[in-house]
């Protein structure tokens, strides 16, 4: 359950983005998670709900965008998406490659907050 550690860090990070002394409520949090990051979506959602209780993030919607794994193939000289994470081969020419270009993301992309009109 390392998702709990990630959720805790995430709350801390989101709170840092909010203007100080504000009580802006966070509506949604958008993440980009790579298929290789070993994060279990449901566990993260569950942990997020748990750790946001009583914070400005309480009730916020957690939007998770899955980032596919892409690799660079030196033979095709192209970045290609992997068909599965069990086989690191170029899907076009089957050359083995460990040159990963995306798929390890564990990124806080953006947050949506309610702002009080001045």
């Amino acid at each position: 359950m390392h998702e709990l550690s990630i959720a805790n860090t995430l709350v801390e990070l989101v709170e840092q983005q909010l203007p100080s002394h504000s009580d802006s409520k966070v509506r949604s949090v958008r993440l980009r998670i790579g298929a290789l990051s070993c994060v279990h979506r449901e566990s993260l959602e569950f942990s997020f709900e748990l750790v946001t209780e009583g914070t400005l993030l309480q009730g916020a919607y957690l939007e998770i965008e899955s980032v596919p794994v892409t690799v660079y193939c030196p033979v095709c000289d192209a970045v290609e998406p992997l068909e599965g994470i069990q086989s690191f081969r170029c899907p076009r020419c089957q050359t083995p490659t460990a040159d990963i270009r995306s798929g390890r993301e564990l990124e806080l992309h953006s947050i949506e907050v309610d702002t009080v009109p001045v």
């Binding site: 860090t9 953006s110 309610d114």
Partner: peptide
């Protein structure tokens, strides 16, 4: 209340990294 989107684009485990 107007919702506003703040772009952050940062690694969640930035502190550890």
């Amino acid at each position: 209340m107007q919702p506003r989107i703040l772009e952050v684009r940062t690694q969640i485990l930035k502190k550890n990294d």
